[in-house]
């Protein structure tokens, strides 16, 4: 049975990734292109400034993949790969939750696990370190930023697990509703502490040295030696749209995963549940199909 559930998780995950890819290709690539156009323009302006000041200009190496490959094939492989990865982890979480989180039926449980995956892997980390389009992010801080992001993901997932575990322990004493609220409160408090403790990206020492104190790495206007703005800061509307579509793509991915997996899993689980019930001789112990 585990194998069949896992296979369905992978299938639903890959399908979810495919839909997220189509969504991204149609709606989000526009803003990725705008961000890259901004970056190219800014690099050209910077090069002109450096040249005027008599500094050596460093040129980028040749692109490994063309924009066409990145924006059509690469993003597709990336999104479907991510979807399959999430489908795999989702199916493990689902199998572990089955029968251990109260009387939740197969389909609602799929939606709950998907919601937890969305929040744990993306939503909560996004609150502290939101998705950024190309041209935001300094190359020399990638290691620190990567570690900070992974720390946020690891903490939000670990605390989610702890909240579910604690909620189950509290349920007999406080009832399901209050136990769930208490566990949610505990989660919010714990992740809030982590968010307060972890540094803002702009406050990393390399950034403070080069740019002074800022909250993020979002490019500010480029100025010449006299302080005149020669190239604008990163366009706010592009940043907002990119983040909105990033959020929408993840919501679509997890929503599809939960909705596609639920009925598939139920068809596997229902006969097993029925057989178990008859074996244990408790007719009616399993509620009718939802």
């Amino acid at each position: 049975m585990e194998k069949r559930i896992i296979a369905r998780g992978l299938l639903a995950g890959a399908l979810a990734g495919l839909l997220a890819f189509l969504f991204a290709r149609v709606f989000a690539e526009t803003f990725i292109d705008k961000a890259i156009a901004y970056e190219s323009g800014r690099d050209a302006a910077q090069a002109a400034l450096d040249k005027a000041a008599g500094l050596a200009t460093d040129s980028d190496g040749p692109d490994i993949f063309s924009r066409t490959v990145q924006a059509n094939l690469g993003i597709g492989v990336g999104m479907i790969g991510f979807g399959a990865a999430m489908g795999a982890l989702f199916s493990v979480a689902y199998l572990l939750c089955l029968g251990r989180v109260g009387r939740v039926q197969p389909k609602p449980l799929a939606l709950l696990v998907a919601g937890a995956g969305f929040a744990g892997f993306y939503g909560v980390p996004f609150l502290k370190y939101p998705a950024n389009p190309p041209s935001i992010g300094h190359a020399d801080t990638i290691r620190a930023r990567g570690l900070l992001y992974l720390a946020m993901v690891a903490c939000s997932l670990a605390f989610l697990f702890a909240a579910v575990w604690t909620g189950r322990r509290l349920a007999p004493r406080f009832g399901n509703w209050n136990a769930t609220l208490l566990a949610a409160l505990g989660y919010a408090a714990a992740i809030g502490v982590v968010m307060a403790v972890l540094p803002a990206v702009g406050e990393l020492s390399a950034n403070v040295r080069a740019f002074g104190h800022h909250a993020t790495e979002t490019p500010l206007p480029l100025t010449d030696a006299k302080g005149t703005i020669v190239y604008p800061g990163f366009p706010a509307d592009v940043l907002f749209s990119f983040r909105l579509y990033s959020l929408a793509a993840q919501a679509l991915l997890w929503g599809t995963l939960g909705l596609a997996f639920g009925p598939l899993a139920e068809r596997v689980l229902r006969p097993v549940m029925r057989a178990n019930t008859e074996e244990s001789g408790a007719p009616g112990a399993v509620p009718a199909a939802v």
Binding site: F21, A24, A28, E29, I32, D63, I64, F65, V69, Q70, A71, L73, G74, I75, V77, G78, M79, G81, F82, Y122, P125, F126, Y129, P130, A131, N132, P133, P134, G137, A139, I142, R145, G146, L148, Y149, F242, Y245, S246, A249, Q250
Partner: peptide
């Protein structure tokens, strides 16, 4: 080597991962 990074570049940005 940066082949993998560059290939899935757009997906990384959109999925919320920090990217170069």
């Amino acid at each position: 080597d940066m082949h993998l990074h560059e290939f899935v570049h757009d997906a990384r940005h959109l999925l919320g991962f920090p990217c170069h």
